[in-house]
C-alpha cells in the first residue's frame, strides 16, 4: 500500500497567462484509490491528463515506476501501456464493434492473436456486464453501457493504474450507478485508481484518499472520512455545500 507508483514533483503548467497548476507535488501509491476534487478550472483534469502525457507539463517532474514521463517515444508508449484512461465522453471508436474496441490495442500493441484477444475481451466484457453486446457498434449503446465498454477497453491492456476523467459527468442520472458499480468492483480488486469526479457519495465510500485542488494548488490531502466529516476549511465546506451529497 505504501510504495509510490506515481510521483509528481513541483509541477507547473500555464495555458497562456493562466497558471493552471502551481508547484504541485504529490504521489499515488499502488493499490490506492485517490479522488481528486475541486471546482471547475481548478486544474484537476489537467493534472490527471499529465499522468499519461495527454497534457505536457512546463516544469517539474512526473515519475511512473521511477521512469520520467516525457516525450521520448519508446518510454512514452511503455508508459501508456501501464496507464489506462477513461474519458468523460467515452471516446469509443464508432467504426468498430464493442469487441473490436476492446481488442484493438492488445492486438496492435502486444501483437496478441485475435482468438486470444477475443477470449480475453469477452472475459472483461463479462466483468462489466456487457458481454451480450459484444457485436454491437457503440452508437447502439446507452451512455452508461458505452462507458462500461470504455473501462473494459482500458483494462484490456492490463494497466497498473487507471485514470478516470469525470467518468459519469456526461451520463443521464439513471446510468451513473451502473458505471460507479463497475468502478467500485475495480477498486475492491486492488486496482490503483486516480479519479476526477463530482460524485461525493462515491468518493466517500470508495476512496482511500481525497485531494482537493483550488486554483492550481493542492489545498488538502486527507482520508475521506476526515475530509467529509471533519472539514475545517471554510472554502471546502462551501464547495461541499454546493455539490449536494
Amino acid at each position: 500500500m505504501t510504495q509510490p507508483l506515481i510521483r509528481v514533483e513541483k509541477v507547473n503548467k500555464t495555458f497562456g497567462a493562466h497558471h493552471v497548476l502551481r508547484d504541485v507535488s504529490t504521489h499515488f501509491n499502488a493499490g490506492e484509490v485517490t479522488v481528486i476534487l475541486g471546482s471547475s478550472g481548478s486544474g484537476k483534469s489537467t493534472l490527471l491528463r499529465m499522468l499519461n502525457r495527454l497534457e505536457t507539463h512546463d516544469s517539474g517532474v512526473i515519475l511512473l515506476n521511477n521512469q520520467e514521463v516525457g516525450d521520448d517515444p519508446s518510454s512514452l508508449s511503455a508508459l501508456r501501456r501501464d496507464v489506462g484512461m477513461v474519458f468523460q465522453q467515452f471516446n469509443l471508436f464508432p467504426h468498430l464493434t464493442v469487441l473490436e474496441n476492446v481488442t484493438l490495442a492488445p492486438r496492435r500493441v502486444h501483437g496478441t492473436a485475435r482468438t486470444q484477444a477475443d477470449a480475453k475481451a469477452m472475459e472483461l466484457l463479462k466483468r462489466v456486464g456487457m458481454e451480450a453486446h459484444a457485436h454491437k457498434h457503440p452508437f447502439a449503446l446507452s451512455g452508461g453501457q458505452q462507458q462500461r465498454v470504455a473501462i473494459a477497453r482500458a483494462l484490456a491492456m492490463e494497466p497498473k493504474v487507471m485514470l478516470f476523467d469525470e467518468p459519469t459527468s456526461a451520463l443521464d442520472p439513471e446510468m451513473v450507478k451502473e458505471v460507479l458499480d463497475v468502478m467500485k468492483q475495480l477498486a475492491r480488486s486492488g486496482m490503483t485508481m486516480v479519479i476526477v469526479t463530482h460524485e461525493m457519495g462515491f468518493a466517500r465510500e470508495v476512496s482511500d484518499r481525497v485531494l482537493f485542488l483550488h486554483q492550481g494548488e493542492i489545498v488538502q490531502d486527507r482520508p475521506p472520512a476526515e475530509f467529509f466529516e471533519q472539514q475545517d476549511n471554510p472554502r471546502i465546506r462551501a464547495f461541499l455545500g454546493q455539490v449536494a451529497h
Partner: peptide
C-alpha cells in the same frame, strides 16, 4: 486520437 494514444497505440 487521445483514446488511441492512451491505449498505447503508436
Amino acid at each position: 486520437m487521445e483514446a488511441a494514444k492512451s491505449l498505447g497505440l503508436s
